[in-house]
Design a protein around this nucleic acid. Structure first.
Lengths: 202, 202, 202, 202
DNA sequence: AATGAATGAGTATTCATTCAT
DNA sequence: GATGAATGAATACTCATTCAT
């Protein structure tokens, strides 16, 4: 499971440069300064030439995506492990709460990703899809064993996660994020006999 | 609570220019192209000089805020009217579903606001706060009359709305947005005897 | 007969800047350094900002063309005056010889134009056509009064002029240029009874 | 007079690479795209490394010259053969007309050479001189046997050829090129008793 | 000798902002 | 108050050339 799609093995020095760039980019991302930097600066910080930066990551987005990729891969792994280890509903709950922990620990990253999401560079689609598949699998399992209602798509969960990560700079972020997850989980339990649902006449 | 800080009544032509600028900006916003334009271009589009643009709206954010203001005011009004007219829980539900309708009808605006939120230019704070206060009031009322649980802040609702508007370009947006609102509302009802809540040991 | 196509009268300062830019560009052209300069430098030399340079002349070629324009206009004028004042054949001869004098006096300009011709930016077409029309008129007049053969187009004359100006850096340029003109003029006289023309069997 | 300065026989693969580079370069030249390519691209196109390109042709001009060399050699050969086979005046005429044919058949090449001429990279001097010597010899022979006037240098002929090749993109190129050659040849015949030559008083 | 990744100086171009008219 | 020309710092990106592999 390599970081790069193409299989052409990189020359040793190329590999080294690529890693240096990625490492610095991750660092900058975590510090939430990804967009405050000139693109060239990533090269300078990593100690390589501008040309090298451009060779490896032709655009700022390509770089962001590369950083993002590992993140997402880790999250997907985690989802898979939870799914294997816990009852479905519990796995979902644990995953979502863990997600908040993760975003809490990497606020800069969250902010960067949120911005990228807003800009919605299609380049991030792949990663987003992978994550979504993981969530979908978690939700589907819970639906199958009857602990979660079947009339709400995993997409809604994604959207809520989106909101959580996008709003990461609210003063009370942590508490509110937990609140959203709680609401989601409580809302997801098998349909209560009857929610007094209101018809939006508008 | 006027739109402009200073109350000095504008000269007739100044008023006209200001309106022209706002109208164009709103249009552009709705088309979702607010960030694809050079700031100057708003002047050109409105048929006024650059200087005039700057006099009225010293920054891009100031302009966005001005556009945003009316939106927000309308939404707040709506919240107030619903609060006065309906039982608390119903008012909240109607407001949230109406919000989705509104975002659905003004996708471009939604995108623009989402981006602005992500960038979180403090200039939008005022508008955001007004909206939040309206939501808070709706939630508080429902908590008071016992139809909504008291352990979750209105902030969480805001966050979810954030997510909804930020993700507006998902293919299945409408259905998913409705899903999020449903989950929220179902999760918000008075605490079920016991959600089998999982302790995130992480 | 203004320098600019559009009739919108330039603001005084704009006019001043435009003139300053043109003046410097002409100077640089005459020195044969037109292509050795960064485009920005034209701004610096003229004492205006880069933006101003770009406003007036969006490309290097646009600037060159502007310089070229005046040249061509002057040459066309000269052609017209000669046509009015002299017998047709004499007018043509005088024009061509004067052309060589002119190129001799402005070698840098010649070099610049030659390069531009080679690159053949269509922007120069207009100027080229004007000049060609002038030559065509001269030739046509001479054909009409029977001093010049009718089976050779003015285009051939243009081509020869092209060659003269393109080759301007040959060590013996002046003599050779005169030679070409002489050959042209002698070749142009009413068809000798019979040139022992050779069939190119190749 | 070999193609390369050093006579060290090339290693087989070196030879192969050199040929591949030359072949591609010629192709590109003929397509008239010699200057639209990055220098590196010649390497890529030929399927060799950048370093190899540089080893064989240290500059773009060196490469152009190498392509140009064979061209010129062929033309010179042709001139020599014509001189040996035909009466002097006929040889000259045939050569010039053949030249036009050749340029007509290789327009891309013509454009490339014209540009190189304009840029006048001394690297082309050698080839240019060879060609010029051939023309000079043709003219001199014709002068010697009295069919061509002696007061005009071969340089003038070169200059005209220059013009022909430089103007290769005129819509009516072929006809005009023929026209120039006709004028030249007619102008070159032994001086008519008296051309009503006009004194350029200027 | 061949390779192609690395290099980074060089350059064009934009665009937010100012200020003379 | 309005105008829009001028400004020039900021920045992205290329590509000729080198040199480690």
């Amino acid at each position: 499971m390599s970081t790069r799609g193409s299989d052409k093995p990189l020359r040793a020095d190329a590999q080294r440069n690529r890693q240096a760039l990625l490492a610095k980019a991750r660092e900058v991302c975590d510090a939430g300064e990804f967009f405050d930097l000139r693109f060239d600066d990533f090269a300078r910080l990593a100690g390589v030439g501008t040309g090298t930066l451009y060779r490896h990551f032709p655009t700022r987005e390509a770089l962001a995506e590369a950083v993002y990729h590992e993140e997402v891969a880790a999250l997907c792994d985690r989802a898979r492990r939870l799914r294997d280890a816990l009852p479905a509903h519990e796995a979902l709950a644990t995953f979502l709460r863990g997600m908040v922990d993760h975003l809490d620990a990497h606020q800069g990253l969250a902010r960067t990703l949120a911005t990228l999401m807003a800009t919605s560079t299609a380049a991030l689609a792949e990663g987003g899809e992978a994550l979504e598949q993981a969530v979908t699998a978690l939700v589907a399992a819970a639906v199958r064993d009857g602990t979660v209602r079947g009339d709400v798509s995993a997409g809604a969960v994604m959207m809520a996660l989106h909101g959580i990560s996008a709003a990461h700079d609210r003063p009370d972020w942590r508490a509110e994020a937990d609140g959203v997850v709680t609401l989601l989980l409580d809302g997801l339990v098998q349909p209560q006999p009857s929610t007094p649902n209101v018809s939006p006449e508008r």
